[in-house]
């Protein structure tokens, strides 16, 4: 078991992180940016879990990944509530058009 070298996990995680970053930059939609951020958080979790394979007594990496998942869930709920408020106020989801604090 566990014949896959650590570097391959790290490469998959790096690829997912960079694709998530590109999604966050290119999409002109708040929820599109949120999709990219979720993908980046997942890529970070792959790193933590891949290193945690070599720590079977304490599993610090897996516990850290668990807390990352909790924080990601909290972040998404608050971000979606803010996006819905912004959409109700400005009637747009384009981050470039939301440039005033008050309309």
């Amino acid at each position: 078991m566990n014949t896959i070298p650590l570097e391959h996990y790290l490469f998959v995680a790096a690829a997912l992180f960079c694709i998530g970053l590109a999604i966050t930059i290119t999409k002109r939609h708040f929820i599109g940016m949120l999709l990219g951020i979720e993908l980046m958080l997942n890529a970070v979790n792959i790193n933590l879990i891949a290193f945690s394979r070599y720590d079977p007594e304490k599993l610090s990496g897996q516990l850290f990944a668990l807390f990352v998942i909790v924080v990601a869930a909290a972040e998404v709920t608050v971000a979606l509530a803010i996006i819905l408020r912004v959409f109700g106020h400005y009637n747009t989801v384009d981050p470039d058009k939301v440039s005033d604090l008050k309309k």
């Binding site: 996990y9 879990i49 869930a73 998404v76």
Partner: peptide, 25 residues
């Protein structure tokens, strides 16, 4: 990678919760 509990948590939290919220959004 040997993280079975994290995999189930991932499916429950992300697929069951976050993705549904995003699609609602």
């Amino acid at each position: 990678a040997g993280a079975d509990f994290l995999a189930v948590t991932q499916i429950m939290v992300y697929v069951g919760g976050i993705l549904v919220l995003l699609i609602f959004g």
